[in-house]
């Protein structure tokens, strides 16, 4: 059974009847021209934006069988641009870990006392990924998370996601990097 199943998802005028499946321990990369609604599709799968029709299932269970909070704890959307909360790196992580009721795990290579608003793009993205992995979601929806990173930083982040997904999870990426799918051995999706 597919871990994430999307069937006939429609949000006019951006996309219609989007259908695909994502197996456990697999990646998929969503491709399409700028402004075609890739971010909107990720957000819709995370239940952050409404759709006109269609269904989304996690391990066979319809999204509507979960409360919104339950769904988003298991299907985690990571924002484009790494949103930072007020406070330090440690406080950013503590805000989410206390929300999820899990112990805070410090982000590797980041000073816990550093002001999150003053992190570089790469550091902020590492913080965002660290937060997103808290509570061990089943599916990661990664919205151009490597766009602002230099190549070594992008590879390092990819490596972390690859390790995480290999443990039975799945990741759906939006990326303009044409070689990402090949590197990850990922399915390329062109729903447009």
């Amino acid at each position: 059974m597919a871990l994430l199943s999307v069937r006939s998802l429609t949000r006019a005028p951006w996309w219609r009847n989007v259908t695909f499946e994502l197996e456990a321990s697999s990646h998929a990369v969503l491709r399409g021209p700028s402004g075609s609604g890739k971010t909107l599709l990720l957000r819709a799968i995370a239940d952050l934006d409404p759709v006109d029709g269609g269904e989304v299932r996690l391990a066979g269970r319809l999204r509507e069988e979960f409360t919104p909070a339950q769904w988003r704890r298991r299907v985690r959307y990571v924002h484009q641009g790494a949103v930072r909360l007020e406070g330090s790196v440690a406080e950013n992580i503590a805000a989410i870990s206390s929300l999820l009721g899990v112990p805070p795990e410090p982000a590797a290579d980041l000073d816990p006392a550093a002001d999150a608003k003053h992190l570089s793009g790469g550091e902020a993205q590492r913080l965002a990924l660290q937060r997103a992995l808290l509570g061990s979601p089943d599916v990661l929806l990664l919205d151009e998370v490597t766009a602002a990173l230099d190549e070594p930083a992008a590879r390092e982040l990819e490596g972390r996601v690859r390790t995480y997904v290999a443990e039975g999870r799945a990741a759906l990426w939006v990326s303009h990097d044409p070689s990402l799918a090949r590197r990850l051995g990922a399915l390329e999706l062109h729903p447009w």
């Binding site: 995370a46 952050l48 919104p68 909070a69 339950q70 988003r72 704890r73 985690r76 959307y77 990571v78 924002h79 949103v83 909360l85 805000a95 989410i96 929300l99 999820l100 937060r131 997103a132 808290l134 509570g135």
Partner: peptide
Amino acid sequence: REEVELYLAHGATRSQ
């Protein structure tokens, strides 16, 4: 909006 949606995306209820 981004801050509120960050919490939502990590499993917060609307009141949280």
